[in-house]
Amino acid sequence: MSKAEIFEKLEEIFRDVFDDESLQIGERTTAADVDGWDSLSHIMLLSAIEDEFDIKFDMKAVQGLQDVGAMADLIGELL
C-alpha cells in the first residue's frame, strides 16, 4: 500500500472517530491541531486504525507517535 493510500484511509478513520466530515489531515498534523483529540480519543483512534488495517501496534509505538506522518510511517512498516 502506498503512503497516499494510507493517508486516504487515515483521513476516513479520523473523520469517523472525530465525527467531522470536513476534517483534513497532513504529515505534520498533531493532537493540538485537531479539536477533541485527547488521550481518550487517541486510544479509540489507534483501535480503529488497528481494526481497519488489521495490524497491532505495540505499546512502544503507542506512546511514541508524534504526528500523523509518523503514524503513517509506522502503519507502512507493519503492513
Partner: peptide, 11 residues
Amino acid sequence: LRDYILYSLLR
C-alpha cells in the same frame, strides 16, 4: 492510570 490501566483495558 491512563497509560497502564485505561489503555490496557481498551486494547
